[in-house]
Amino acid sequence: MTDLLAPPLLALAGSPLLLGIVNKTKAAFAGRAGAPLLQPYYDLAKLLGKGAVYSRTTTWVFRAGPAVQLACALTAAAVVPLGGRPAALSFSGDFLLLAGLLAAMRFAGAAAALDAGSSFEAMGASRELQFAALAEPALLLSLAALARACGRLSLAGMFAAHPGGPAPVLAAAALFAVFLAENGRVPVDDPATHLELTMVHEVMVLDHCGPDLAFINYAAALRLWVLGALLLGPLLPRGTGPGTAAAALAGLAVLTGLVESATARLRLVRVPQLLVGAGTLAALAVMLARGGR
């Protein structure tokens, strides 16, 4: 029982810490002291203690958005295994459920942003969905490549199979681009920007406040964890426990911070090119993956 519950509990407790690590890395790279590692937790506690304000132009769609996003992210955290252990929720074809959950989460966010009736938020939603439309094929193709290389249809089976050859590495490279795009990290979107015109993910949540914003931020942190675990899973050596896998996730967060510090954000028209490139890598991985053995 503890075996089954360890990965989701680690995700619940540790995901905001990943954001803290990313921010600390960026601060260290820029020569600043930076916010404490636990700052995302303090922010969540502060937001949860506040009340919510709703504009009169919004409807139930706006109020349901944060809750739906959080629900999707929590379910996704239960689906993805950590290290070599089976996930809390595992069945044949569960990677399609994961892709669906991520899509539903994005839809809830975009619908809430459109419901606010602000043109800025609608613009952010439009961009987020445009990028997502290109990131989703890359995600699905990478998962298909893994499924084909391992001959298994469940995420736990894929993580446990450890197939050789180039396919898992190519799939992981494609998943890294998806990881950066879906979480709104630097080459695609800048989480620290304060200019509405250039924001993508951040502008969509401008009208949310209090517990709603806490839900959205926590759901985003969980998504970072889930996609990170998905990216690392097939690469970790056999017999990796949840603790080691969580440490590898922290390493991935440091890498994300380094990428954010070292690269400039891509021009908006260049982002689709990056994502199409990731898609081609994933397609190549599908073709190179040999059937299960």
Binding site: Q273, V276, G279, T280, A283, L284, M287
Partner: peptide, 14 residues
């Protein structure tokens, strides 16, 4: 275009 070329590259590969 360059993106479309890459998609064509995948089709070529297949």
């Amino acid at each position: 275009g360059f993106s479309l070329s890459q998609v064509a590259g995948v089709a070529i590969l297949a």
